[in-house]
Computed example of a mutant assay.
Amino acid sequence: MFKIEIKWHEITNQTMKELKDALSFYNYSFPIEVRETESVFLQSLRYAETQKLNNYHFIAGYQNEELISIVTAHYLADVNAGFIVYLVTNPKIRSKGLGAKSLQKIEEVLQQDSIHAGYDSLKTIVLETETEEMVHSEKEKEDCVKRTNFFMKNGFYKVEDFLYFQPPIHDDGVDVPLHLFMKQRTEQEISKSEVKRIVKAMYVEKYHHGNGIEKEVLNTSYRKMNLEKHDLFCD
């Protein structure tokens, strides 16, 4: 059986060579119209350095000095949840367990964040995936189904009956309806009110502090989800 030996590196603002390689890997993996700018990654790393409990991770996996995987995630201390933003693997070695190993690695890292924040265990992990309505071709539809099956195979489930929008990450000002997928890591079920709190933390930590999206823009997207009577930011 093919076995992948991976050496994991935590990317920081101080590891400039690895950071440059990881960003090149990211840019190569996504078409320009859906990429976030490199400044978002740099800002997220800088912001994490100022935090005591919240955190941001940019993990790179190497095989024989070749970069084969990157995964990024935020730890949201107030809700004891991890938010996986990107998981990208080398297409030449997919279907060999690399994606699952990358998920396992970031889960271990987020678990350590949870313990550092004073919890016994990380409560849940959340991520966004595109909806079926977003695909434009049979190939994209096939990839969408594969991603959904991959996450479900690795313990995630789709949050049903929950309207979610990714706020505008590009200059077009368009927010995007997406699915939320979650992985429960404790026996206690995640209630709808807890999902709402997690989404609020995602908006504040990732999209405001990480992406630098203005508060009023985020408030507009937040209102569309009908999560509560108050805006995300009330000042």
Rank of each mutant, 00 (worst) to 15 (best):
V40R: 08
E216K: 12
N54G: 08
T37K: 15
L232S: 02
R185D: 00
S114H: 03
D78A: 11
V85G: 02
W8A: 03
I32W: 08
I169L: 14
E132W: 06
V109D: 05
Q184H: 10
K192I: 14
H209L: 14
Q14F: 13
R185E: 03
M182Y: 04
Q166M: 11
V88C: 09
A77W: 00
A201T: 03
L53P: 00
S114A: 15
K183S: 03
S114G: 14
K105M: 14
F25W: 06
L42R: 13
R185S: 02
T148I: 10
P168K: 04
F156I: 03
K105Q: 15
L98M: 12
K229F: 07
K141V: 04
Y62F: 15
I84L: 11
W8N: 03
E132Y: 08
N90W: 05
G99N: 00
L227R: 01
V40P: 02
I4F: 10
L180Y: 02
S102N: 05
N149S: 08
M182R: 00
V40C: 12
L19R: 05
L87P: 01
D78H: 04
R35V: 04
Y47R: 07
T220V: 11
Q188E: 14
D171S: 14
I4N: 13
G61N: 03
N55P: 05
R197N: 14
K20D: 13
Q188P: 02
H9R: 15
T131D: 08
K158R: 13
Y86V: 05
T129W: 03
T186H: 08
K183Y: 01
F156N: 00
Y26T: 06
I84N: 00
S24G: 07
T129R: 04
F41T: 03
N54T: 07
K96Q: 14
Y203T: 03
P168V: 02
V85F: 05
S69E: 02
Q63A: 09
T220L: 10
K92I: 08
I4Q: 13
P167Q: 06
K200D: 02
A100E: 15
W8F: 13
P167S: 07
M16V: 14
K200C: 03
L42I: 15
K101Q: 15
V88I: 15
S29M: 08
S191G: 08
M202Y: 02
A81L: 02
E189T: 11
P91Y: 10
Q184M: 10
H170Y: 12
Q63D: 09
K192T: 14
